[in-house]
Amino acid sequence: MTKPWFKPVADHALLVEFATQISDAANRDVLALDQALAKADVPGVIEVVPAFVNLLIDFDPLVTDHTMLEATVGKLLKTATQTTHDPVRHAVQICYDADLAPDLAAVAKACELSPETVINAHLAGDYRVCMYGFAPGYAYMAGVPDPIQVPRKAAAVRDVSAGSVIIAGPQCLITTLTMPTGWSVIGRSPSRVLLNRPDRTFLFDVGDHVAFERIDRATYDRLSKGSPHD
């Protein structure tokens, strides 16, 4: 494991950073520390929030402080290891019909590929949930293949439907709310990330892998019936 550096945040949090640039190695270090912290049940830790290259520990200042937590994390890192066991894999269905994929043609044009080639490349990707962020259930996945990576748009588009599959650079995510986005919308999924089941609220845990599975419009319409996305 890489030795991280620490940054105190306000009176109640500590940011533990492994790198300044996104890399798989840094994200695996983050996940290893996240798991180690979950197991260790450190007094005063309220919640741990993993991200691409760093992890935030929110704590109760009546119980612990920045310095004590730094020492605890330092100790945990000596024994923490990156997990070797197989990650949980999810299949997420996606429909690429033009009206559900308003940016597919533009992505194809930017990449000098046919829309069908873009779809096949997207389906071939192995996506890993690196972090949740922004809004409830927004799982940031890395793994968009190089040939179809496109930058964010210059300006966000409003009212992008929930369930949209959107990409920007190496990242892909499935939206859970109707919100503006500057990412490219290349399909729509009837699968719900926000399950709201009593036993499980969100479909993925950070570290899980996701593969997309293509469905036709009739299947999409059938599966999305009664979905809160509509």
């Binding site: 760093n54 935030l56 972090m131 962020g133």
Partner: peptide, 30 residues
């Protein structure tokens, strides 16, 4: 910078140099 966790109370500064104080319903990363 890579998207990272943010908190209620974070003073985030966008590219235009304007600061936003994040409050109760803040986005969780920025």
């Amino acid at each position: 910078i890579p998207s990272e966790p943010i908190l209620r109370g974070s003073l985030q500064v966008a590219g235009d140099g304007v600061a936003t104080a994040l409050l109760a319903d803040h986005q969780t990363s920025g």
